[in-house]
Design a binder for these strands. Structure first.
Lengths: 116, 116
DNA sequence: CCGTATCCTCTGCGATACTG
DNA sequence: CAGTATCGCAGAGGATACGG
């Protein structure tokens, strides 16, 4: 995770903290409560386990997510949002709404043809 | 600009639209009103002209920004937010606040040592 | 003052295999 | 079920030069 050192305003730092293809959606999923790795892996379309763990680690590193490790077999670990994480969630809710309105509103969004 | 085709929720599409090192800060700057390229270039720490134009083009492509080209010499072009752009701005305001609180609150944010 | 074209580096992301 | 280790590649981002 790279956080830029020079920045024009705090916004840049905050967004660097959740920059990564899957970080926002991970936070978004954790709004539903504590989640296991396997659950997240199943629920997030297109992600793989390695990226999931990597992104979760970085989210933990900057205090957005925490985890609880239960002993025993099979292993059980639960990830959940910290208080800081919930603040980020409030920002993501705005973008979720924009996305909902926008995707429903128009039919030809030419830039979406770049979709992969 | 690549927008993922499979996604878990609209949030991912919306964030793909502003993904790019400088896009959020460009939008943020445009909250102040119409801006010229040279002004943005001067005001945004660390950006260069090529990236600025590239990111502006992509923001125009997906309807977040528009531009007006005035004839004459020297050339004058002004960039500004569309209605959709202002919606994104409301989301960014949340992250700006988080950043302000957060940066002021603690002194040792270890992950910031990765800053470059 | 705006914008385009090259070239080059570096890293984010994905596939895959393996360990506790 | 959770996590680590390797390897490879496409593409994002930056320096620099040129053109309208």
């Amino acid at each position: 995770m790279k956080i830029r050192s020079e920045f024009t305003c705090p916004l840049e730092v905050t967004l660097d903290m959740i920059s990564g293809k899957w970080k926002p959606i991970i936070i978004w999923r954790l709004r539903l409560g504590k989640q296991q790795l396997s659950t997240l892996n199943k629920d997030i379309q297109g992600i793989n386990q390695k990226m999931l763990i990597q992104h979760l680690s970085e989210l933990i590193e900057c205090g957005i997510v925490e985890k609880i490790t239960y002993g025993g077999y099979p292993l059980k670990v639960e990830y959940f949002l910290t208080e800081l994480g919930w603040k980020f969630l409030r920002g993501l809710e705005v973008f979720q709404k924009i996305g909902q309105e926008y995707l429903g509103q128009y039919d030809n969004k030419s830039f979406l043809s770049n979709a992969r």
